[in-house]
């Protein structure tokens, strides 16, 4: 297990390094000029050159990339601004703050969105999946399946607005989505994010309903379940102690992937509900041509995806001893 983890983490770091290099060098192919943004209303060419130097984008590309890598491990100095401690992802072109500090402020929002949504779609998805599996072939089963199928065909950028129109503008049942830190007020935190959570869970639930149902149906027909039943174990304990355990592996897998998606791909969700987290930050970094911010975001998102994969594999192995880690 330990060797497996070490190998996977090393592999992940190599992947992240490659992604950072690709992002960095592609950025310079963009016909954009971040310096113009940090230059006044009237910006003669010599002033523009000065700004470029101030931003540190006058150096050749490989040199800049090297400084960036250096910053992550040992930190780096910025003339006139001060020292940026490791892990230093650079200073934002747009707000002149360390990227890492800015992103640290956005992470709780995005995580809150993901965790709350996960809470709902896991409960609803696994719950309906179980019901469907136990009541196989009944009306309940069919209703659960078709409901989840319809849900999975919806897109957040449509359902999100419809939900806001109906529940917020028309019926005034929920608040306009907003983010309040949990530490400030747990109630405001939950009520502000409730609508996005529900909409996300409608869309994500389907996978879990289907997966839970098919896994349980399969497990319940396995020999060991029959043996356990024959030995006199109650239906209930067979269900929860054996069948459920066997079914969990694939569910953990898709859950890991979905969490990666929710954290790494929060752009559309946050744009729809206009909640300021990593996703909207990314949108803003793109319009500002804020390379340090963009790189930082890419790295965080990629790391989220890569490490979610590793965790999933490890958990999978823990749950299902048949899987050997190699």
């Amino acid at each position: 297990m330990f060797r497996f983890l070490i190998r996977r983490v090393l592999g992940a770091l190599v992947i992240l390094l490659i992604i950072s290099a690709v992002t960095f060098f592609l950025f310079y192919a963009i016909p954009r000029d971040p310096a113009r943004m940090a230059c006044g209303k009237v910006c003669p060419d010599d002033l523009l050159a000065q700004v470029r130097a101030n931003l540190g984008i006058a150096d050749p590309m490989p040199v800049q990339y090297w400084h960036w890598l250096e910053g992550i491990f040992v930190g780096r100095d910025y003339t006139g601004v001060g020292h940026c401690n490791a892990p230093c992802l650079g200073y934002s072109f747009a707000n002149n703050q360390p990227v890492f500090e800015t992103l640290k402020g956005d992470i709780p929002t995005t995580i809150s969105l993901a965790i709350g949504a996960a809470f709902f779609f896991l409960i609803i998805g696994i719950g309906t999946g179980m019901v469907a599996a136990v009541k196989q072939g009944t009306f309940l089963d069919k209703a659960a399946s078709s409901f989840s199928l319809i849900g999975s065909s919806m897109q957040i950028y449509f359902v999100g607005y419809i939900a806001m129109f109906l529940l917020v503008s028309q019926l005034h049942l929920l608040d306009q989505p907003s983010y309040t830190p949990f530490t400030d007020s747990p109630v405001a935190w939950a009520s502000g994010l409730l609508l996005p959570w529900l909409v996300l869970s409608i869309i994500f639930t389907a996978n879990y309903t289907r997966m839970t149902r098919s896994q349980l149906v399969e497990q319940l027909s396995e020999d060991y379940v029959r043996t356990a039943r024959a030995k006199g174990l109650s239906r209930r304990s067979v269900f929860f102690r054996f069948a459920w355990r066997g079914a969990m592996g694939p569910i953990v897998t898709i859950f890991g992937i979905d969490m990666g998606t929710l954290i790494g791909g929060a752009i559309i969700t946050e744009s729809t509900f206009s909640i300021q987290g990593l996703g909207l930050r990314a949108v803003r970094a793109v319009t500002d041509s804020d390379l340090p911010m963009l790189l930082g975001l890419t790295m965080i998102a990629a790391a989220g995806i890569v490490f979610a994969n590793i965790i999933v594999d490890a958990v999978y192995a823990l749950i299902d001893p048949r899987i050997r880690l190699a």
């Binding site: 209303k41 949108v283 803003r284 793109v286 319009t287 500002d288």
Partner: peptide, 16 residues
């Protein structure tokens, strides 16, 4: 134009 810049930067290319 600065103000416009500022407003512009918060409005993504049609995103928000």
């Amino acid at each position: 134009s600065r103000r416009n810049f500022l407003i512009a930067t918060t409005v993504a290319a049609g995103a928000t």
